[in-house]
Amino acid sequence: MIEDSRLLDVAEAWRREGRRVAIATVVSTWGSSPRPAGSLLVVDERGEMLGSVSGGCIEGAVIREAMEVMRGAPPRLLEFGVSDEQAWEVGLACGGRVQVYVEAVE
């Protein structure tokens, strides 16, 4: 597994290669959530990604938002809540909630 702060080196390297890059950061969590505040996901315009902001349940949605941000939309703050029933399925055992900030590297 790649250490979170190293992901920022990857983001810089990708951007320097001319790729469009977005960074998603967990900025707050409630309840039990698999990834703590500060966790990062780096993604490029083709959907290549490194890191994670959850156990995998919200990555798809985060990447969709990241695509829009890479195409020029302003940075955005996403919020995901997980009901108790879903929570068990996705591994957020007590119905976690998580806020993720998505921004492009300009």
Binding site: S5, L8, D9, E12, R16, E103, A104, V105, E106
Partner: peptide, 24 residues
């Protein structure tokens, strides 16, 4: 995030500086 800021952040980290990134 501006690339210049990301570069400065990575440089400071590589130099083992203590860095806090503030996002408004």
């Amino acid at each position: 995030m501006k690339l210049a800021l990301l570069e400065e952040l990575n440089r400071a980290r590589a130099g083992k500086r203590q860095v806090c990134l503030l996002r408004l």
